[in-house]
Design a protein around this nucleic acid. Sequence first.
DNA 1: TTTTTAGATCAACCAATGTTGATTTCACTT
DNA 2: AAGTGAAATCAACATTGGTTGATCTAAAAA
Lengths: 193, 193
Amino acid sequence: MINEKHAVFRQKALRLILEKGYKGATMRDFADALGCDVANIYNYIPSKKSFLTEELFQMSERFHEGLDQIIAAKLGVEDEIRQLVRLYVQLSLDYPLQVALLSNEWRHLDQPELIEFLDERNRYERKIRKIVGRGIKSGELAKINPDVATHLVLASLRWLFIYTSEQPVKNRITLENEILSFIFKGLLRPASG
Amino acid sequence: MINEKHAVFRQKALRLILEKGYKGATMRDFADALGCDVANIYNYIPSKKSFLTEELFQMSERFHEGLDQIIAAKLGVEDEIRQLVRLYVQLSLDYPLQVALLSNEWRHLDQPELIEFLDERNRYERKIRKIVGRGIKSGELAKINPDVATHLVLASLRWLFIYTSEQPVKNRITLENEILSFIFKGLLRPASG
DNA sequence: TTTTTAGATCAACCAATGTTGATTTCACTT
DNA sequence: AAGTGAAATCAACATTGGTTGATCTAAAAA
């Protein structure tokens, strides 16, 4: 079902949605980018909205899968966060345009998909909040409002797609380590004698 | 020129744009929220786009002003970042809906405002990058890619409007300190004997 | 060769959306 | 009481945007 034309369409459409937003990127924009007629696009997708919906849930599932694997491994809090960073860097490198969708375009889902998406996102964030909360309770992490801490961890990861969709990342491992170092130890140079 | 009706309109319109995006929130949505006719709104604003444009640049200027004051004070890097956090917490508390605009809706500006806005945003980010870069060079901050560090600092602040537009913040000082502690020292509890 | 089938093309439709102009309402000034 | 000006109402317009159906092309299957 998915052939090469379809793949080219996806790539161009996602890029346009990143630049202009879902509503801002029109079917005619897609057609222009592909050099074909508008009606032609309906050979690839049933509708604009269903395209968005499918891409969103597909990407959402990738994050869920990754997170569930991390949790299933039953690591310590520090290693779990380490793996979480790896997950975000990997997905943001592999699917920058879809990760961008996840940040900005979910509001344009229709019911009932919208509520379903938000439910899943809440479940996802609760899982992370559980990890963070456990770390704070056990004393591995600093004493801080768990909600704020969760927001901060996620915020430290969610900017990645901007970075990866603009320029090629030279060294993935270095990037991971820098983010990890920031999340764990912050920006200040450790005081040493 | 700005009377009470105008203020109510702004509030409702900004809230709707936060929820549905600029293109998703229609003039008729605004009218419904106000309980008036669509045409009525043109008593308050010249056009939908000019409303967006004005709000965006007004908010952008508030950030510029705040940042310029910080820089003019010629503090050390650590204090500059401290003040930057204060600035973001304050503006995100005072103008959550406009800060949200700044994150998501600038793409819908027309030329030449779009290019002007992006220029200003670049100038702004370069200023911050300069602070961070100076801190890294001087050894006050950890050795890390300055671009990544800048992204991380900004990311640690840009989520705030989500938090402040959803629920009232109990203690502003605590919030500031938690974010600061995260940016400077990270999540890990400092090892101590 | 004939048949089939995916893909391209063209024209058009219909709902939604930003905007305008004409007219009316109504509070406030003189 | 008359007049002024802002604000509300109503109807309508022009454009845009997603989508469809009919038709044509051409390559693959039979």
